[in-house]
């Protein structure tokens, strides 16, 4: 197991977990979210292929109402 920071929460996940796996674990729907890994926006197409590393900072952004 490794631990990462997910929107400032510490989360433990299995070694080799992808960004897609993290979303699944947290039951966060992929539609309408964006991921920022260590301050870099990650293209959606890369989510299944990027494996989390120990102490990674992963941020999830979503859409909200606005003008």
């Amino acid at each position: 197991m490794i631990s990462i920071f997910l929107n400032d929460e510490v989360m433990s996940i299995a070694d080799g977990s992808s960004l897609t796996d993290v979303l699944k674990r947290r039951t966060i729907a992929e539609n309408g979210v964006a991921l920022v890994l260590n301050a870099e926006v990650v293209p959606r197409s890369r989510w299944p292929h990027i494996m989390c590393q120990q102490d990674d900072t992963l941020e999830v952004f979503s859409v909200v109402a606005g003008g």
Binding site: L6, R26, V60, S62, V63, V64, A65, G66, G67
Partner: peptide, 10 residues
Amino acid sequence: VTLAVKRLDL
């Protein structure tokens, strides 16, 4: 329509 983006509140 316009929308905003925000860090998701888990």
